[in-house]
Design a protein around this nucleic acid. Sequence first.
DNA 1: GTTCCGATGTACT
DNA 2: GTACATCGGAACG
Length: 191
Amino acid sequence: MAPDLARVVKRSAPKVAARLIGASLRINGVGGIIIETEAYDASDPASHSFRGPTPRNAPMFGPVGRAYVYRIYGLHWCLNIVCDALSPGSAVLIRALEPVWGLDLMMARRGAVRTRELCAGPGRLCQALGITGALNGQKLDTAPFALQLASPEVVSVGPRIGLRHGTDTLWRFGRGGSSGLSRPFSPASVR
DNA sequence: GTTCCGATGTACT
DNA sequence: GTACATCGGAACG
């Protein structure tokens, strides 16, 4: 793992989630720029890790810098980056990318949709990048994955999406002005 | 543009 | 049995 990435993923989930905005993510060369993330940890009632380890969430309690891939609603896959060396059960959900590399392959996997909808949502980006449970637990700095940080940037913050619990925790991060988000941020959300 | 609904793996009551 | 970190399509305006 690149030294800067190795250092960053040891930190807390909200810090990692904010720092990943602007990073490039590829699987077998197909991917883009991360523009939306959410943080989860074991003290968070919205997190899969809240009730302790299970067979499904086991990667969240394993080494940092690896993928936690799970099926949602029985249909879609979601990709997380395991983080926080001090608090097992922490991870960052990747919610949206700006598609950059392998657009043709993404289109073929997703069907005929507009470019900005290719990776605008956690299930959509997994479909576009070909991410399935087969990648669960894999290292993110090793093939087929490639993850590279970019310079820190100002990010928008807001409540996480689709939750029943933890809705007052502002652990959603993103590029507020981007057209590729799964949902917009409220106007006064830049920190 | 909006709302409603069905698909169905995994964890839990 | 119910809930869930979702999506796409149908119906509607």
